[in-house]
């Protein structure tokens, strides 16, 4: 397998620096929130991780469509990579969301639309992995994966809308419909700047990780081909 291209090496360094920079901004630059105190600082990384999850979700759905159109297995490799990364980052988002919720509202889980939809998306991804595991033929595996990514890609946004609608009738946290219950709070300018910096940093991290995971996928494809050759 070819060595890492220079651009990727630069991205590795950039990702590391941006991550460090984000931490610096969160802990040294952003002010302490009046009501929630320190735990609010999770917020920046919670949102950024969810953002990466979203990016992965979109890339996966796009790659799925591209595969069905072009029939090129390259797109399948991108699709798997995007699904995996989205899975991991939404997991982090869900866990941090839960940790943030506990001291803020006294409950580990709020059945709010975003958290619940993220959890459902994780189930879709796991189903996707199980689907692929049950198929030997690489072409069929890619086709089915692409179809399911498409189905998931359309159904999850509709799920979000329906849960959101359901929620307006059953407020998640009894008695509190204020902005803070939805996770809102007044953001000072320094907080906004920190938030945007983190979002940017994690976007770069996403691109870097995606590239690495695609390389892994290509290597796996090489090994599979080599196995087939060895069996002849």
């Amino acid at each position: 397998m070819k060595a890492q291209p220079l651009v990727l090496k630069i991205m590795n360094v950039a990702s590391g620096l941006l991550l460090a920079g984000s931490l610096a901004m969160v802990f040294l630059y952003a002010p302490l929130e009046a009501v929630m105190n320190h735990v609010q600082k999770i917020f920046y990384f919670h949102i950024s991780n969810a953002w990466v999850g979203m990016l992965g979700f979109i890339v996966a759905a796009f790659a799925g469509i591209m595969f069905l159109v072009k029939k090129d297995l390259k797109w399948d490799i991108v699709e798997v990579a995007a699904v995996e990364i989205s899975l991991v980052f939404f997991l982090i988002a869900i866990v941090t969301g839960s940790i943030w919720a506990r001291p803020s509202w006294g409950t580990w889980w709020t059945w709010d639309a975003r958290l619940t939809t993220a959890a459902i998306l994780e189930m879709v991804y796991l189903a996707y992995m199980l689907l692929r595991q049950g198929i030997e033929d690489p072409d069929r595996r890619a086709r089915f994966g692409a179809v399911y990514t498409l189905i998931g890609g359309i159904s999850v946004p509709i799920t979000f809308v329906s849960i959101r609608l359901w929620q307006t009738i059953h407020p998640a946290i009894i008695g509190t419909e204020s902005a803070s219950a939805q996770g809102g709070f007044a953001m000072a300018p320094a907080m906004l700047q920190t938030m945007f910096f983190c979002l940017f940093a994690f976007s770069v991290i996403f691109a870097t990780l995606l590239w690495h995971r695609v390389r892994l996928g290509r290597l796996a494809q090489q090994v599979e081909l080599q196995k087939l050759e060895a069996m002849q």
């Binding site: 105190n37 320190h38 735990v39 999770i42 990384f45 919670h46 943030w100």
Partner: peptide
């Protein structure tokens, strides 16, 4: 709050 932040 600090404990939860660290946990996060």
């Amino acid at each position: 709050s600090l404990k939860y932040m660290l946990a996060g």
